Simulated scan of single mutants.
Amino acid sequence: MKYCAECGSEYQDHVTECADCPGSQLVDAETMRARGLIPNSEQDTREFLRVGTAEDPLTAEDYVRLLEAEHIPVFSRPRRGGTVDVLTTGNPHPWWEILVPEEHVAKATELLAQEKARLDATSDEAAKAAEEEELETEATSAANPAP
């Protein structure tokens, strides 16, 4: 059997290209294991640990894409969202936790911290630009009162 080096799909030996990842390499099970990936035909017993959280699904997707681009196995799942959580935490919005295998925790944590800093900086810039625009609009309105 051969496996796609990108998505891990299993193929018979005569297949030359993954149907889902055109251009990706098909490799044997030993090569998959050497890359730290487990072939789909084998049971995955790795422990996944939380490396971060996201307050909304778009940020969670951003984090997942970032880690996948670095070939780090990752998944996210919504955590908070039930009535009891709203009553006990006071936060009505769910949050997502980002999980990776134990051996990738250090790198994933570092990447997520960098991405969070980048997103926070972008958010601060957007807030400042909106505030400046609002002040400019108020100044324009004051200079040109409506008849």
Rank of each mutant, 00 (worst) to 15 (best):
L58C: 03
A113H: 07
Q43K: 13
D44N: 15
S24T: 13
R79Y: 08
T88A: 11
P145L: 09
V27D: 11
H71Y: 01
K107M: 02
H104R: 14
G90K: 15
Q43C: 06
R65V: 01
F75G: 08
C18F: 05
R118C: 07
A142R: 15
E138C: 01
M32H: 05
L112V: 10
G23I: 01
A5S: 14
R35A: 14
A117R: 10
D85F: 08
H14N: 06
T109K: 13
E30K: 15
H104F: 14
M32G: 03
S41R: 08
D120F: 04
S41Y: 03
A34H: 02
P101F: 04
G52F: 06
E10F: 00
A29N: 04
A106F: 02
L99Y: 13
K2M: 04
T16D: 12
L135Y: 10
A143R: 14
T122R: 15
R79L: 09
I38S: 10
A127Y: 09
A143S: 14
T83L: 11
G23A: 01
E134V: 05
L99F: 12
D56S: 03
G90E: 13
T140P: 00
A34V: 05
E102M: 06
Y3M: 00
S76L: 05
C7V: 00
Q12D: 01
D28Y: 08
D20I: 04
A106P: 02
E133G: 07
E42T: 00
E10R: 12
E115P: 00
T122L: 15
D44H: 11
V27Y: 09
E102S: 14
V74L: 12
S24G: 06
C7A: 01
A60T: 06
E110F: 07
G36Y: 02
E125R: 15
A121Q: 15
E68L: 14
C4F: 03
P78A: 13
T137Q: 12
E17T: 04
P78M: 14
E132Y: 10
L58P: 02
A142S: 13
A108Q: 12
G52I: 09
R65F: 05
V74S: 11
V100K: 09
V64H: 00
P39C: 07
H71G: 02
L111D: 05
L37I: 07
T122V: 09
G23S: 08
